[in-house]
Design a protein around this nucleic acid. Structure first.
Length: 217
DNA sequence: TAGGCCATCTGGTCCT
DNA sequence: AGGACCAGATGGCCTA
């Protein structure tokens, strides 16, 4: 998404006032020589003869550097701004990556209707409960695999047992099969992996988007 | 119009 | 030193 801030940054970067000096400070040009002035690691004459010699050399080569003052503080500001702009770009990228990962997560979560988009927090909560439900499925499948079919619930253990909210084995912070982690049981007949268009499913998918009390993971 | 959600900016902190 | 990560602030968009 292109927003005004990006426009501002680009405008700043493309500023027509950019000079060769600015390019130096922004790292776009290599330094002309190994540093004069107070840069760290720069040459500091330790004796006056050397200093005088250097002064003569300096005067031969070119006029003395402009005095450090307001101009320099302008440059410092520019450097800071440049770093800020770069950091902003990185941060934007990072958040885009995070959102991509969230989108990937949304893709593997069943939703009803199918094109409904979960919010970020809903996605995380739903994924949390979804994983828990699938784990329970496996656990109960293990437990019940030895039982004769006649002892299994008619609708299958998945619906009647595993998805019954508030079971003792539910995750510590989640007691309901929903993205909202509501402690109040309200969804008990949903097959998580492939929700169908039954009335109860629709009720479920519509209701999970509603705000609830104790709405945290 | 208030509230929710989101993207972005920003400064601080931690890590390599 | 520079990048990653984080949390707070801000403003835009949308919906009830």
């Amino acid at each position: 998404m292109y927003v005004k801030s990006e426009y501002k940054e680009e405008k700043a970067l493309l500023s027509p006032t950019t000079s060769s000096e600015e390019e130096d400070e922004l790292g776009l040009r290599r330094p002309r020589r190994a540093q004069e002035g107070s840069e760290p690691g720069s040459f500091q004459p330790s004796d006056s003869k050397q200093a005088a010699g250097r002064l003569r050399m300096e005067s031969k080569r070119r006029p003395a550097r402009a005095p450090r003052g307001p101009k320099n503080s302008e440059n410092v500001q520019r450097i800071k701004k440049s770093r800020r702009v770069k950091a902003n770009n990185r941060e934007r990228n990072r958040m885009h990556n995070l959102n991509s990962a969230l989108d990937s997560l949304r893709e593997v979560l069943p939703t009803f209707p199918e094109d409904a988009k979960l919010t970020k927090i809903e996605t995380l909560r739903f994924a949390h409960n979804y994983i828990w439900a699938l784990s329970e499925t496996l656990r109960l499948a293990d437990q019940l695999s030895g039982l004769p079919a006649s002892l299994l619930p008619p609708g299958g253990f998945l619906q009647d047992t595993m998805l019954s909210p508030g079971s003792a084995d539910s995750p510590p912070s989640s007691s309901a099969w929903s993205c909202t982690a509501s402690p109040s049981p309200s969804y008990s007949t949903l097959s998580p992996a492939s929700p169908t268009s039954s009335t109860s499913d629709i009720d479920y998918w519509q209701s999970y988007a509603q705000p609830r009390a104790n709405d945290f993971i």
